[in-house]
Amino acid sequence: MNSAKHLTDARHQDSQRRRTKVLAALDQLAASGADISVSAVSRAAGVHRSLIYRHPDLHAAVTTRAAEPQINTTTGPTASKQSLLADIANLTDRVRRQDTHIRHLEQRLAETLGEQVWQRAGLGGPPDHDALQKRISHLEQHTTELQQQLADRDDDLDAARAANRQLIASLNNLKDKP
């Protein structure tokens, strides 16, 4: 019986010692202006995070301290965590836009250099490439116009054939009547 009481007392003392370490670590982090979270406090106290989560009063103390504005211990300007996160998001977006722009410029440079190499090597297209492209466009447009004219004439021919059939049918009907 005496040993059970001894074990209970030792367990209680160990629990009190760890609680004291957590509270001291929390005060130390708050005084230094460091970021306060359950992980940071447990790391500073040398205890497992589950200890803080199992004791509602310790967890409440950590979340309360984390929500408090940090005291400025420096002489220069400071920024809030939210403004720093916004800055990070803006910078990340800017880097993404710059990466896209750089890839576009690299692609254009590669195309230009590639064309120059082809022309210098004699493998490229003829020097009047632009004139030929314009001529191709003109001929394609002319072909489209001719195809439209042909379709219009086909429609006219079909209409004339239908009218001719009706006239012949009418003539045949007149011959058949006495």
Rank of each mutant, 00 (worst) to 15 (best):
P77K: 11
Q116H: 02
T64G: 10
L84D: 01
H129Y: 07
D155P: 06
L58H: 00
T74E: 04
Q149A: 15
L85M: 12
D152V: 15
T143A: 14
S83D: 12
Q116P: 00
H104R: 13
N90I: 09
R96E: 10
T64C: 04
Q70N: 12
D128Y: 03
T92N: 09
E140G: 02
S50G: 08
A31R: 15
E115V: 06
D158A: 13
I102N: 12
K81I: 11
V117N: 07
L146M: 15
S39C: 06
S83E: 10
D93G: 11
A67E: 00
D154C: 09
Q141R: 09
P69T: 13
S39G: 11
V95E: 01
L123C: 14
T144M: 11
T112H: 05
L109Y: 05
R120L: 13
I52K: 05
Q147Y: 06
A44G: 03
T64E: 10
G122A: 12
D152Q: 10
D155R: 11
Q119S: 09
D87R: 11
L123F: 14
I71W: 12
Q98Y: 04
A34Q: 05
E145C: 09
P127K: 14
R43E: 06
G114K: 05
H142K: 14
L29N: 05
T75G: 14
S83K: 09
H101M: 10
T73Y: 07
T112I: 06
H129P: 00
E145V: 07
L85W: 06
T112L: 01
G33M: 01
Y53A: 11
A66E: 04
H142P: 01
D27P: 02
I102A: 11
T63W: 03
A30H: 10
S80F: 01
A151C: 09
S37G: 06
I88K: 04
Q141G: 05
A44F: 02
R96L: 08
